[in-house]
Design a protein around this nucleic acid. Structure first.
Lengths: 229, 229
DNA sequence: TTGACTTCGTGTCGTTTTAACACGATTTTT
DNA sequence: AAAAATCGTGTTAAAACGACACGAAGTCAA
């Protein structure tokens, strides 16, 4: 592909903040850089955008190449442009955030050559480039979004209990929620389908399993409806 | 400036959706393109990003160059990357939206050489590139944001009446609001300072003027407070 | 088999917030 | 002085919210 260079051009990357949930705490997927700059540092998965793909395509591609993840919830976050954010040259980064079920990925990361690891968000190491800024913007966005759009389900397995959902909300928002009020509210939206199945996993009463109802969600969205809490 | 072209590079533009309010309807500032491609079409103000400036800087610069506007409220919106969105070559556009007081600009636009005009949002002409997409994303964002952050003041003169504020909300949200409830709500946030001044402008009772209290707003923001409605 | 332990699942009530609703006050114009 | 326009204000019924406690269902060990 030949170009006439009429305008200034910059290298473009996408970087993805991938969130997972381990039933206790929110986690982020980081990769260890194998090349300079920042060789040996942890960084967000990402890479250069090709000239024949959109940013969304680039984000999905990089995510798959570097972490093996596919079909995750992925959304554009913000574009970072500090002039010297990359020591090599001018690089603009379009950041994305992704939500995925942690369990899916555990084995995959272990067998993958690239060193990818889930870090608790309370224990994130020093990050390459301005990735710490990107991460904190992503967390802020996730917190904001969780309270008015039912995206929490993306972080849970297909079948989950109300307690798991509540723990997720508590972990992300960093606050304790009242059990009865939480259930009342969540069920009132009619977005959960109770299954003929229970989760038994300890010396106690088993819990009802539910699954998310995406059809109902789409219908509500069209009516301009906004989920809350 | 010499580069070693290790990575694919793309030209980068910023495009700004500038909103104003004429006491009746929301408006957008468009410029008529003097050059190909899309010569003679209306487009969002914007232009190429230089290698030594951030995106925010580029947006402010272009806004000033093309429309004379300065010191407006400006926020990054979304980055658009459809591969063929520019017929010349690959161009990524980082979109911004801006809010400004319409009155400020009226005279300026008239004397400026470049043809810039305010269009009612219900009467926008065909736009160049994918600017119609950018515009509709900006409007969506403005609507969403208005209900939980007090940014409406950016669109009004420094001194305004509660009726003006209400008309603004009604115009942006596209719904009628109850006068008494609106006043009760707005005043309860304690973000407005009543002035010793009234607006008299017709054969009817004059209206109390207020101004926005930015100090109070900053204090509330720090407490994690969110404005509503 | 019984008791200890753990999480699950549920309802009430007082308080706060919301939504609906109408009319006298003030000013200008004729 | 009457007409016309917008300004500014309070009540009430309904809905939503937040606080709060205990029996049910299962496992395990003595």
């Amino acid at each position: 592909m030949k170009h006439t260079y009429l305008y200034p051009r910059a290298a473009l990357t996408v970087d993805c903040v991938v969130f997972g949930f381990d039933e206790q705490e929110l986690r982020v997927l980081l990769i260890e850089r194998g090349l300079e700059p920042f060789k040996g540092h942890w960084a967000l998965p990402g890479g250069f955008v090709r000239l024949d793909e959109t940013l969304d395509e680039a984000a999905f591609r990089e995510l798959k190449e570097e972490t093996g993840l596919e079909k995750v919830f992925l959304e554009q976050l913000y574009t970072f442009s500090t002039v010297d954010r990359d020591p090599r040259e001018r690089v603009i980064s379009v950041a994305y955030y992704a939500l995925t079920k942690l369990a899916d990925h555990r084995t995959r990361a272990a067998t993958d050559a690239a060193d990818a690891q889930w870090f608790r968000i309370s224990q994130i190491p020093a990050l390459a480039f301005d990735h710490a800024d990107i991460f904190s913007k992503a967390l802020e966005r996730l917190r904001g979004k969780l309270t008015y759009q039912p995206i929490g389900f993306e972080l849970l397995p297909a079948k989950f209990t109300l307690s798991q959902l509540q723990r997720l909300y508590e972990a992300v928002l960093g606050t304790a929620l009242d059990k009865r009020n939480f259930r009342k509210k969540v069920l009132s939206y009619d977005l959960l389908i109770p299954l003929n199945e229970q989760l038994r996993e300890g010396p106690h009463r088993p819990a009802q399993l539910f699954r998310f109802n995406p059809v109902r969600y789409e219908r509500l969205k069209k009516k301009g409806f906004l989920f809350e809490l």
